[in-house]
């Protein structure tokens, strides 16, 4: 069947400036893909546009989820269809407790109040796997969280909400090595035939723990190369210049 997230020739602008210039990418359900590329290549923009960020303008192209076009859906509708974005810069929401927020999010996804015991079981499981303290559940969402705690909180949400397609935008940046392992453990616990992730990262380090099936490289608003896990190792060794030349030469 068509169980996959598909980006077809996506052109996106912001304030009249074209940022994505024909991105094409397919993420089949059950796979983990890495998305790499230099600063400013458009990786976060792609993630936000897939999630439905209304501040960007889709000029051309389509986004399909399991064969259904979602390009014009609101972000919450996309989320309820199984999409999730772990933000590069998670937003602080003072006054909203983590547990209350997650219960509401789950309720909106399920269309009904989640069974309370199952909800707490999910929370407990995620908290334990992430080596965290239950105290975090009564804190206000991301308010006063350290950079690393914010990233961990994104994975906590991922584990409780259980989307089918997750985009993780630099969830590894700002993490110490132990936190990195913990976050990777969280993501790996989700892996299986009914879960895919697009892992945006600058570092091979994360990919040692979350081994991708496929690696894509973005430059200047396009996916310029797709390969296996060895592509990430090559970028780690050689940087992006050779690829820039390759793209320019083509």
């Amino acid at each position: 069947m068509t169980n996959r997230l598909e980006i077809q020739d996506l052109w996106v602008s912001h304030d009249g400036q074209m940022i994505l210039k024909g991105v094409t990418l397919t993420l089949p359900l059950g796979e983990v893909h890495a998305l790499m590329g230099p600063n400013g290549a458009g990786k976060s923009t792609l993630g936000k546009v897939i999630a439905g960020d209304p501040t960007y303008q889709v000029e051309k192209g389509r986004i399909l989820l399991d064969g259904e076009e979602i390009t014009d859906l609101s972000p919450d509708e996309r989320a309820r269809k199984g999409l999730f974005l772990a933000f590069q810069y998670p937003v602080e929401v003072p006054g909203v407790q983590v547990a209350n927020f997650l219960r509401l999010a789950l309720k909106e996804r399920l269309g009904q109040e989640p069974p309370i015991t199952e909800f707490y079981a999910r929370l407990k499981e995620a908290i334990e796997l992430l080596d965290w303290d239950e105290a975090v559940l009564s804190r206000y969402l991301n308010e006063g969280f350290s950079g690393g705690e914010k990233k961990k909180n994104e994975i906590l949400q991922l584990m409780v909400l259980r989307p089918r397609y997750a985009i993780l935008d630099e969830t590894d940046s700002g993490l110490d090595i132990d936190a990195l392992k913990v976050v990777a453990r969280g993501v790996n616990s989700m892996r299986g035939p009914a879960f895919s992730a697009l892992v945006i990262t600058h570092y091979q380090r994360l990919l040692n723990y979350i081994v991708p099936d496929v690696v894509h490289v973005m430059m200047n608003g396009r996916v310029v190369k797709t390969g296996g896990p060895e592509l990430a190792l090559e970028l780690e060794k050689r940087g992006y210049d050779w690829l820039k030349e390759e793209v320019a030469g083509a």
Partner: peptide, 27 residues
Amino acid sequence: EEQLFYLATRGIGRKGAENLLVAAFLE
């Protein structure tokens, strides 16, 4: 709007998110 978008990406619609933020504001 950033908070609304963040909440939306978790599946919380506009009304639900507004309600959450108003309750937080008045808490």
